[in-house]
Amino acid sequence: MSDRLQRAILTLNRLEQPGGGTDGTDIIAAPDSRCLLVLTLIYLVLMLSVPLADIERVLLFSVYPIVESALVGIKYTRLLKRSLWVLPLVALVGVFNPILDTRTVFTVYGFTVTAGWVSLISLIVRGLLAMQAVLILIYVIGFYEVAVAIRRLGCPAVMSTQILLVYRYLSVLLQQVLTMRRAVDARGYGRRHMSLKLWGIFIGQLLIRSLERAENVSRAMHARGFTDRLPLSRYRCWTTTDSVLLGSWTVVFIVIYLVPLGTYLSKVL
């Protein structure tokens, strides 16, 4: 338990830094944080607005995570593995589709494939792709810079600060769980499970304490001149490479979105 917690904290803290999600391998050619943020947003909007039944088109959108991960130097298998985390969530949303929607779409070797199955699979693929795109974003520029990028794009300071604080709060919460868990274990005489009553106390304490810690952290920030705005002085400028990257991917996305490549392909094959 406490090992897993420590690893969770470590991952969380890693993700905060540029290149942090890649376990040591350096990010090659990291784009400007704004560029990647906008790119990710365009991708998500277009990919998620493809109709559910249009499964080939959704599959074509997988070109982005595969190619972009190679461009920045993240192994796609790693990305894929991490993105599996969304499966339970997506499954929860789509699990009844096969039961509810039994219209036949096509038959393969005597198996009827119903619209419900198609939409479930389409949901799963979308979920994975969306997660992969977001992971690329966070792996490459780090969570902190996502917040900074939001601010640099002209959104109100409150918004980016909120995002950063939610993230900060999350790691405070996890650390608090860890310390408290250790405290319980230290005097738990090897008992593996906490009683229901102890759980109640634990959760209650956890909330109070992490609120208190969050309060202290914000005090410390203000004591060092923080005024609810992230300082922006040190970030790199937008380059031509960024424009090219953003431009070419956007064209690719729009082509996939508008041109029925899938039907062409099936005609050719």
């Binding site: 803290n13 905060e16 830094q17 902190y144 410390a220 920030m221 005024t227 300082p231 040190r234």
Partner: peptide, 21 residues
């Protein structure tokens, strides 16, 4: 623990000066 919250040590030490612009 209350005071350190930036991703790296150098970012954390720079936090005050950067806030002073």
């Amino acid at each position: 623990d209350d005071q350190l919250f930036m991703p790296t040590v150098e970012d954390d030490v720079a936090f005050g000066p950067r806030n002073m612009n």
